[in-house]
Design a protein around this nucleic acid. Structure first.
Length: 483
DNA sequence: GCGATCAGCAA
DNA sequence: TGGCGTGCTGATCGC
């Protein structure tokens, strides 16, 4: 599965059957056909059916192996497979099995507190609306806001009125109720997805055991499910408190976290060779402020206001994630024209980046795929499409995938080296989580100093780029306190 | 019970 | 020349 994923991320449905079909091997059924799906999923009643399926899978894997190996060699991806994806697979399994301890008492207290607050806000909203309705239903909420109260309709969805946060933000001054709805939404999200969601998946060992999907994303990133531990809140204080429930498995241990600072932009500085971007990182400047100065033509650092820096940050965000001028305009609440202007200016002021982007697109058009520093491929079917939208998307993808994908490669390399060292040096600490540019560990107090040295050293020296790789580390009694 | 839709979280 | 970075989860709603 991992080999097939490296060869082509798209034809990988997460099932051997799909891969077999690709190679015209049909003596196999999909897992779904045998085990069912949804609520009916389970082992077949007839053992023979079950065993026959397993046997056919083994046979299929044997048949596939030499073919996949040959293709890996032809595509020069054998190293990527052998030295990166195969070892990472075992490390992820260990992390999943280890799990992370979650303080259910803490979550239960939060649950009560949030339930009380949701109740209060709910009553307040009903009071102002003059009727009771389901605030969680965008349809009912839209009816109240845009029909009963006749607030201006700012945006529509396919099926009705949009009640998304950016819309509500604009309606705030029209009615005090809107603020309450925003407040309600914020807490309801934390309550249902995180407090209740996490409580449901704590096992007898007091831990949650996420599963990392290694063969899913088109860029080489991991994803995390059941539960997803890669999107635990952090930006807003209310949500951030969820992290207080993530604790070490023993008293006197701590949660230690280390993350790469701006790894994607550093990768971009490296692959593009852009003089200005490299200079900013080599001088360890505040990259968003530095971008602000170039894009908005500011000569003195002290003239970069927080708002201007925020805009520059959004531009950098757009570069890293491959968003369109429309996406940037939505992020910043500006017109598409202005957004396009920002992007054009960015390219003007970072000519190396522009050159890199042109080259990436040209190469993708020629080869039909984009690739990372470590030969991870992403095929781009629509790169030569006559459909503007499809083509534009593929072009942004051609630019963005090597950046995001190479960053993912680098963290995987660091994880492999760290895992090796932790074992060799017999650390008691365990690696628990990977969150795209961050690694989270639990560690005894007396090992903390050595672990910090090790993690920092390994992550920063995982690969050598034209610009330094910098990490920021922190620790505390809970994941919240590791900040 | 299931799938589509909307909404919102993270890097 | 028209929809708009990805992936995951939860609530609602209609079938």
């Amino acid at each position: 599965m991992v080999a097939a994923y490296l060869l082509d991320t798209t034809d990988n449905s997460g099932d051997i059957e799909g891969i077999c079909a690709h190679y015209d091997y049909h003596d196999i059924q999909s897992d779904e056909a045998v085990y069912g799906k949804g609520a009916k999923k389970g082992l077949p009643e007839d053992d023979e059916v079950f065993f026959a399926h397993l046997a056919r899978k083994i046979k299929a894997i044997q048949w596939l192996t030499p073919k996949l190996e040959k293709e890996l060699r032809d595509k020069k991806q054998m190293d990527l497979y052998r030295d990166m994806e195969a070892p990472i697979s075992s490390i992820l399994a260990e992390m999943e099995i280890t799990g992370i301890t979650v303080d259910a008492n803490r979550l239960n207290k939060m649950k009560d507190e949030f339930a009380q607050r949701l109740n209060d806000i709910e009553e307040k909203i009903f009071d102002q609306a003059g009727e009771r309705f389901n605030i969680n239903s965008p349809k009912q909420l839209g009816h109240i806001l845009f029909e009963k109260m006749e607030l201006p309709v700012i945006k529509k969805t396919k099926t009705g009125y949009s009640t998304a946060v950016d819309v509500l933000e604009q309606l705030k001054d029209q009615s005090p109720m809107v603020e309450d709805i925003l407040q309600y939404r914020q807490i309801a999200k934390i309550q249902s997805t995180y407090v209740e969601g996490l409580l449901k998946v704590i096992l007898q060992d007091g831990k949650v055991h996420t599963r990392y999907l290694q063969t899913l994303t088109q860029t080489g990133r991991l994803s995390s499910v059941d539960p997803n531990l890669q999107n635990i809140p952090i930006r807003l204080e209310e949500g951030r408190k969820i992290r207080q429930a993530f604790v070490p498995r023993k008293q006197d241990w701590v949660i230690y976290s280390s993350d790469y600072s701006q790894i994607e932009l550093r990768v971009l500085a490296h692959v593009s060779k852009d003089e200005h971007l490299q200079e900013a990182f080599n001088k360890n400047q505040d990259i968003h402020a530095s971008t602000a100065m170039r894009v908005f033509d500011i000569s003195q650092p002290e003239d970069v206001t927080p708002n201007i820096r925020r805009q520059a940050k959004a531009v950098n965000f757009g570069i890293v994630y491959g968003i369109s001028d429309f996406g940037l305009s939505q992020n910043l609440g500006i017109s598409r024209k202005e957004a396009k202007n920002y992007i054009d200016t960015y390219f003007e002021r970072y000519p190396g980046v522009k050159q890199y982007m042109n080259d990436s697109v040209a190469q993708a058009k020629e080869k039909g795929y984009a690739e990372t520093l470590y030969k991870r491929r992403r095929y781009l079917e629509s790169i030569n499409s006559s459909n503007f939208n499809l083509r534009s998307f593929a072009e942004r993808t051609a630019i963005n995938s090597p950046i995001q994908g190479s960053a993912a490669d680098i963290l995987k390399i660091a994880m492999i080296e760290l895992d090796k060292q932790l074992k060799e040096k017999q650390f008691k600490a365990s690696m628990l989580l990977q969150v795209h540019d961050e690694l989270v560990f639990e560690v005894p107090q007396d090992e903390l100093e050595t672990l910090d040295q090790l993690v920092k050293g390994v992550m920063e020296k995982a690969v050598e780029l034209d610009v330094p790789l910098i990490t920021e580390s922190s620790w505390g009694k809970t994941w919240y306190d590791a900040k």
